[in-house]
């Protein structure tokens, strides 16, 4: 992270949190946005007020944004490229006689 925003003197901003919402039982939590809050409890309450005003969720996770490790943009090619030529990992790579039916 670039540090300038977090090191502001005197009155500093409330830290940033990422919000993940489970829209209904049985589904995964999905990232839906972020917000500033002083602590975890407040972040949860504010996430409820901002992101579930119309019953969009049954469960909320909040995570301090600074705690997230992301892949670096410059890595992109090298990081994901190795999977590009491994088409044998997909079922469509294999030809099966029609009479076998669905497999």
């Amino acid at each position: 992270m670039t540090t300038d925003t977090n090191k502001a003197p005197a009155l500093k901003e409330w830290p940033l949190w990422e919000v993940f919402i489970r829209s209904k039982q049985g589904l995964e939590h999905k990232h839906c946005g972020s917000l500033h809050a002083a602590d975890a409890r407040q972040a949860l309450q504010m996430a409820r007020d901002v992101y579930t005003r119309r019953q969009e969720g049954v469960s909320i996770w909040v995570v301090p944004s600074a705690q997230i490790t992301a892949s670096e943009p410059d890595d992109k090619a090298e990081f994901f490229e190795p999977m590009g030529d491994k088409i044998y990992r997909h079922p469509t790579f294999y030809e099966i006689p029609d009479e076998v039916g669905h497999m």
Partner: peptide
Amino acid sequence: MYTQAMDIP
């Protein structure tokens, strides 16, 4: 959403 913290390592 999508903080610079996530995106500028």
